[in-house]
Design a protein around this nucleic acid. Structure first.
Length: 621
DNA sequence: ATTAGGG
DNA sequence: CCCTAAT
């Protein structure tokens, strides 16, 4: 079961009182007409019924409401997420940076925004796929309120929405009359009618007889569940922040709860204030909503999953990306230490339920997220992938170890690596590595080729991503993509007959920005500092890497003119073109810090006036 | 241990 | 990216 929060008004003052009242009588909250807000807590049982929440299930959401009132919502979610004090500043800065004077970048940015959105939705959908009914329940209940409204009494709501744009959330659920209307509408229908409606909605028949179920389904189909869930999550998120944790552990598979939060946070931070409104504002709650955006369609339709099913696929384990994003935030919060909150959570509660769940999310997208479960010799030991702290370099080293065992040829240099490997990541050999141990027979060419392909694909997608408003999150996306599992390890022959491994990790935009940022803040040369601060969560990217990258950036920032010609034919997607804005900034920084590359310095002023971007600097200091 | 520079 | 010298 899941705890759901519904909002029916807005007034944090009366909040608590109201909560209690409403929770015992979900369908009626008459007293507050205009201002009062009530958060109704309901518990969804099994596949449908809404049950009044028990007292201890009632969550305090007062502050959320408060925020909702004044804020865009985005800020709310984000601040609660990233404890990074300077995040805002950075955000502004980056934004400025990108917007500064590059239309191209701008365009890219909007694209990125879209992409991100899609991405999030997609993963969200996938999330849901995993969750049988629990989280769904919450969603459903919500929809019953607002979604069904759309069908029967959409006009009033719609107008109300656009009229009172103050708080999306409160507006969304605000009037109970809407809910009642909606309920009644569907209630009036017989099962048969419901079936017809269902068919009309989803284009297929259903054998389910449960009216409740049908209603919810239809409602879901008519409204867009994506946003719905978001709302729910947000609330839940805040709840979690307060005291939802225990609750989660108590009532729900906390794993799920956590994921929800993750999803919610991500989506919310993306800047979904509009997203939330979208759903409601849209006067025609048709299934078409999903098709609104081409790429979105693509992402949502890629599988031949029946639509109904798709609707469910909204909650799912967050992609590694998200985990790592969060963890990064977390780590920053705790002073750069690598802390993986989910690890504890997940490991603590290994309820039978949890164990059963993973089966559901099998092959949502090629890269199964759960498989690690039993990987350790089938011992059933549960080591959530989240526990993975890092891969790549350490792994490589580890692999070196294996390699040495299997094929003594590379010994010479391996020794060193092995040593490092043991020292660095020995204790944290996670299941993934464990897996490899099992499969260690793989030849040097080992690295999971299929995986690489996947990654590459993803990278391609992410390539188009630029920094958007929600820089922090965004960056993490990009970055994580880079770190996303497998590295392109290439073995190059070395003089003394040995083989050294060289892995290539394309720098993501996010990383670059971070780097630039860092340089701006601490100055070029303080690589270790920069690494500590900006790259705390990136186990790869050593300070040396940073340095190298900076060197390259510097080079790039001053040349960029002749490059066009040769590059044209050879490789278009070879490496992510660094946005001019960033290069510009690099250049500026370089000049500012008197780091102008000696030789290039002559041509630097050629046809470019990069002097006038001063505000950027201001952002840092 | 970190940094700079060459390869 | 990797390696190494220098600090």
């Amino acid at each position: 079961m899941e705890t759901t929060v519904g909002i029916e008004g807005k007034d944090e003052a009366k909040f608590e009182e109201s909560v209690v009242k409403t929770s015992s009588a979900p369908s009626s909250s008459p007293k507050h007409i205009a201002d009062p807000v009530v958060y109704k807590l309901v518990r969804v049982q099994g596949n449908g019924r809404l049950v009044p929440a028990t007292d201890d299930e009632v969550m305090e959401v007062a502050d959320l409401l408060e925020d909702d009132k004044g804020d865009t919502g985005q800020t709310v979610g984000c601040t609660s997420l990233d404890g990074l004090p300077s995040s805002k500043t950075q955000l502004n800065h980056i934004e400025g940076l990108l917007l500064s004077e590059n239309l191209e970048v701008d365009a890219e940015k909007s694209n990125a925004l879209l992409d991100t959105t899609v991405d999030l939705r997609k993963s969200d959908a996938q999330l849901e796929e995993i969750v049988p009914s629990s989280v769904l329940g919450s969603e459903d209940s919500y929809i019953t309120q607002s979604g069904s409204v759309g069908q029967c009494s959409e006009p009033p709501i719609g107008s109300v929405e656009s009229g009172t744009s103050t708080s999306a959330v409160s507006n969304t659920l605000k009037p109970d009359f809407s809910k009642l209307k909606g309920e009644i509408c569907l209630d009036k229908m017989s099962v048969k009618e419901l079936h017809e409606t269902f068919k009309a909605t989803f284009g297929r028949e259903t054998s389910v007889k449960d009216k409740q179920w049908l209603k919810r389904r239809i409602a879901m189909g008519l409204s867009n569940s994506c946003d719905v869930s978001t709302t729910t999550f947000v609330i839940e998120d805040n709840g979690v922040v307060k005291k939802g944790k225990q609750e989660s552990l108590k009532n729900v598979d906390s794993t799920l709860a956590d994921y929800d939060v993750v999803g919610a946070v991500s989506e919310y931070c993306r800047g979904s204030p509009s997203g939330q409104n979208d759903q409601i504002e849209n006067p025609l709650p048709l299934p078409a909503k999903r098709l609104r955006n081409p790429s979105l369609e693509h992402n949502c339709t890629n599988e031949d999953v029946p639509m109904e099913h798709r609707a469910e696929k909204r909650v799912r384990k967050p992609t590694r990306r998200y985990i790592e994003e969060l963890s990064e935030v977390e780590s920053r919060e705790y002073g750069g230490k690598l802390i993986y909150p989910f690890k504890t959570t997940e490991c603590d509660q290994s309820s039978p339920r949890t164990r059963a769940r993973p089966l559901l999310n099998v092959q949502s997208d090629g890269r199964s997220l759960v498989t690690r479960q039993d990987s350790l010799g089938g011992s059933g030991v549960q080591v959530p992938f989240v526990c993975r702290v890092r891969r790549s370099r350490p792994r490589e080293n580890f692999m070196a170890l294996m390699f040495q065992k299997v094929q003594p040829s590379g010994m010479g240099m391996t020794a060193k690596l092995v040593k490092r490997a043991i020292g660095v990541c020995g204790p944290q050999l996670d299941n993934e590595r464990g897996n490899k141990v099992g499969n260690a027979r793989l030849p040097p060419g080992w690295t999971q080729q299929p995986h690489i392909a996947e990654i590459e694909k993803e990278k391609q997608n992410l390539k188009r991503e630029a920094i958007e408003l929600d820089k922090d999150l965004e960056l993490k996306h990009v970055d994580s993509s880079g770190d996303n599992s497998d590295d392109n390890i290439v073995t190059v022959p070395t003089a003394n007959g040995g083989m050294r491994r060289k892995h290539h990790r394309p720098w993501t935009l996010g990383e670059v920005v971070k780097l630039v940022e860092g340089v701006a803040r601490y100055g070029a040369g303080r690589w270790s500092e920069i690494k500590r601060v900006a790259f705390a969560s990136y186990s790869y990217r050593t300070s040396v890497d940073l340095k190298d990258k900076w060197r390259n950036l510097l080079k790039a920032s001053f040349v960029h003119l002749p490059a066009e010609k040769g590059m044209q034919n050879s490789r278009k997607h070879a490496s992510m073109p660094i946005p001019a804005a960033i290069l510009l900034r690099v250049k500026e920084l370089a000049e500012m810090q008197a780091q102008v590359p000696p030789i290039l310095s002559s041509s630097k002023f050629a046809g470019h006036g990069g002097e006038r971007i001063q505000e950027t600097r201001a952002g840092y200091l």
